[in-house]
């Protein structure tokens, strides 16, 4: 098929359409910095979605659970071996992204006879100073996007754009505390959920405005058959591992 460029491009496009269709209804994930670290937040339905990768690196993803698990193990194994053979300080997001994940995603996506990964991944790295905090999003085709203060992954580009727009308009306070970060994360998640429930052509419209009451309704409905999940990389956490999942009561205390 590679001898026939048109058919190859067509196959890639079909694959892209198929993956995006599968990802569209995935529960979005929001990543935010706050005054004592970084938080990843989503609402899941039973299956855990936020994970510790290494001392200062956390991961979340949307997609097929088997693909998430497989790639989570790849990055966890690699970071663990690297941290042991050299030093834990030598494990960083840049190396894991560029030497392990991005090309693995790309290779699977473009090998049209093999299985593609149905996944979008978000990784967070707690830096030595807040300026060095990093969020990295890796698309199913291996494209990488890096942000420093906030990021999102959602089922489609349009959903992510709507969520990013909400974040840009709402997050004026860069020195927010964890409670404020959780509230902003939930609101942004609600925007993403609303957009993912629309028909694809409607999700791309300019109208992404939803009011606070609607947001709370969306969150309330999602919590009927799901749970808010939030993991933090905390500067103040004792020991070398900075990750911990927030307890349900900590999340509950942050809800309006």
């Amino acid at each position: 098929m590679r001898d026939e460029p048109y058919r190859w491009i067509e196959a890639i496009q079909d694959r892209r359409d198929y993956i995006e269709d599968q990802l569209r209804v995935g529960s979005p994930v929001v990543g935010l910095t706050y005054n004592e670290g970084m938080v990843l937040l989503t609402i899941g339905r039973g299956q855990r979605k936020i994970f510790e990768v290494h001392d200062r690196i956390a991961l979340s993803a949307i997609g097929h659970p088997a693909d998430i698990e497989r790639l989570r193990m790849l990055v966890t194994d690699t970071a663990s071996v690297q941290g042991f053979q050299n030093a834990t300080e030598d494990v960083n997001l840049h190396r894991l992204t560029n030497f392990v994940l991005a090309h693995t995603f790309k290779q699977a996506f473009e090998s049209i006879v093999g299985e593609a990964y149905i996944i979008k991944m978000l990784l967070a790295e707690l830096g030595g100073t807040s300026e060095k905090n990093r969020f990295t999003c890796i698309n199913y085709d291996g494209n990488v996007r890096t942000d420093t203060t906030s990021t999102v992954i959602g089922g489609t580009g349009a959903i992510e754009e709507g969520m990013q727009n909400y974040l840009a308009a709402a997050s004026t306070d860069t020195d927010r505390d964890l409670t404020a970060a959780l509230q902003l994360g939930l609101e942004t998640w609600a925007v993403g959920r609303e957009l993912s429930s629309r028909e694809p052509e409607d999700a791309e419209s300019e109208d992404t405005q939803i009011d606070t009451t609607q947001m709370h309704e969306i969150i309330g409905v999602a919590r009927e058959d799901g749970e808010i999940e939030a993991g933090v990389l905390e500067i103040a956490q004792r020991g070398t591992s900075k990750f911990r999942l927030l307890a349900p009561e900590e999340i509950e205390a942050a809800l309006p």
Partner: peptide, 15 residues
């Protein structure tokens, strides 16, 4: 092989 684990194997948590 320091870094490139060519395939993912299930080590069942055994380092």
């Amino acid at each position: 092989e320091e870094f490139a684990l060519k395939e993912v194997m299930n080590h069942k948590g055994d380092f």
